[in-house]
Every structure is written in structure tokens, then in C-alpha cells.
Design a protein around this nucleic acid. Structure first.
Length: 262
DNA sequence: ATGGTAGATGTTCTA
């Protein structure tokens, strides 16, 4: 059962219903994981998605902020969610692709502006969220599992446009990179995108605050596809659809794809 | 050191 999966921070699923539909029509991943839906679950425009073949959804939502959804052509079984760091936010949901792997969909807290938990509570919450992810993966020992989402950290030097300039910028500070690495290691997760594309600069996000985002290209790789080692070798053909960042009224994130031959 | 843009909501917060 080969299937293609995509992850995309959509920054309002209601405002960008047409862009989600465009991705479904033109790229047709079997499973599409969205973050920042910014919508209660019952207000997600599922009718259009169902018409395009995505008849299955497992989602968590809240009004105005956060929100994660797994839309699928393949049947899903809801496996619940975890409220890491007890924030009361809709930032995680898990589902089993029936007869196949488990998919975890994450929206890790962005962490505010200042990378110092003493003056910025949000940064502390981000680090706490990551350490609770680490503890959970250590206890769960996941197998036959895929983890995707906006992890709000660009871990490698070639995941940001300028490593030195970014060392004190939230998303690329050493303490964040270390915390994400600890969570990754605790679950044994393989970075599928970098397994397939080990060389060179790779970005999935470009700020709205740069009108010439394409030419300036000051991007970061914040969106990730991970898999447990038992299925990571079945993954291939990873890619980032940079073109979607240039669509009309775009999200500030581009979708990240991987295919699994399982 | 600052501001630049965007979305949901509502007279501001979050990213």
C-alpha cells in the first residue's frame, strides 16, 4: 500500500479552503495534515474536501487559534490527543491509517519573540512542550508511526537562510535545537525529509513581513516529516512545494511531502 | 533598536 502524505500549516482553513482544494486537485496526497486551522472542528469546510475524495477527517480545534486536522482518502481511526505542557490548546492529534501506520500531527508552540523563559513565558512553554514530547516518546516507544507538523524549529544550519544570524532568533536557538533533538531521539524518529534530501538549503516557511520573500529567500525549515526506523526506509520522494508559497493569498508555509511504500 | 504582514476577533493577541 504505497501512499503519499503531506503536511501544511494552512493559517486558517476557512479562509484558505480554495487553496486546500487546489492542493488536493493538483497534488492529491492520500493523507493531508493541516496545522493552524484556526477553527472549531464543526466549522471546518469538510464538504468540499469530501467531494474531492477526502472523506475522512480526524481533527482537534478551537476558536481563533491553533487547530490540527488529518484529512484522508484512506479510512482513519481516531487515536486521541495529548495536551503537552497543559496549555489547553489544540496542538496535537493522532490517527491510525486503518491497517497501516499511526500518524501524529503536531503544532508546536512558536515560543514568542525573546528566547529567554525568565522574561518570556511563551518560550518556557515551548521548551516544556518539547520536554513533555520527549518523555512521552520515551514511555511510548512508538513503532510503525509517522510524525508530521509545524514543529516551529529549524534544527540544522542548512535549515535557515543564515545560521549565525539566527542563533539568537526563536526557532533556531541552541536550546530549542537541543530540546527538539532530545524529543526526536527519545522516539527514535528519523527525519525523513533530510534522509531523502540530505544536501543543501531547505525551507518550508517565509515570513509575510518580507514582500520579496522569493528573491530574498530568508526561509526556515519549520515543517517536518519524521518516521520510526521500522518504516523510515520505506519513505522516498520527499519534496517541499515552494510554489504554494506564491499562490494567491498564500499561507506563509509551504507543504512538505513524503511517499511511503508500505 | 525597530518595523515590516497576516488572521481571528473585537477595541488586541498570536504568529
Amino acid at each position: 500500500m504505497p501512499f503519499t502524505l503531506a503536511t501544511w500549516n494552512i493559517n486558517s482553513v476557512r479562509l484558505r479552503e480554495a487553496l486546500v482544494a487546489k492542493l488536493m486537485e493538483e497534488e492529491a496526497p492520500d493523507v493531508l495534515c493541516l496545522q493552524e486551522c484556526k477553527s472549531p472542528v464543526d466549522k471546518i469546510p469538510t464538504e468540499r474536501f469530501r467531494e474531492l475524495g477526502y472523506g475522512h477527517m480526524v481533527a482537534r480545534g478551537q476558536k481563533g487559534y491553533n487547530g490540527v486536522a488529518i484529512l484522508s482518502k484512506l479510512p482513519l481511526r481516531d487515536l486521541g490527543d495529548k495536551d503537552f505542557a497543559a496549555l489547553g490548546h489544540a496542538r496535537h492529534v493522532a490517527a491510525e491509517i486503518e491497517g497501516g501506520p499511526v500518524v501524529h500531527n503536531f503544532y508546536v508552540p512558536a515560543g514568542g519573540d525573546k528566547p529567554d523563559r525568565a522574561v518570556n513565558e511563551k518560550f518556557g512553554q515551548k521548551l516544556d512542550y518539547l520536554s513533555e514530547m520527549r518523555d512521552w516518546f520515551r514511555d511510548e516507544a512508538p513503532r510503525n508511526a509517522i510524525l508530521v507538523g509545524d514543529l516551529n524549529i529549524a534544527p540544522r544550519e542548512d535549515d535557515v537562510w543564515d545560521h549565525k544570524k539566527m542563533l539568537k532568533v526563536v526557532s533556531h536557538t541552541p536550546v530549542e535545537v537541543e530540546s527538539l533533538g532530545a524529543a526526536q531521539e527519545a522516539g527514535g524518529w528519523v527525519d525523513v525529509t533530510r534522509k531523502d534530501l540530505p544536501e543543501g538549503q531547505l525551507y518550508s516557511w517565509w515570513s509575510y513581513r518580507s514582500p520579496d520573500w522569493d528573491a530574498a529567500d530568508k526561509g526556515r525549515r519549520l515543517d517536518h516529516v519524521w518516521a520510526t526506523p521500522d518504516i523510515a526506509s520505506a519513505a522516498h520522494s520527499s519534496r517541499i512545494l515552494r510554489a504554494a508559497r506564491g499562490w494567491e493569498k498564500p499561507s506563509d508555509h509551504a507543504p512538505v511531502f513524503a511517499t511511503f511504500d508500505l
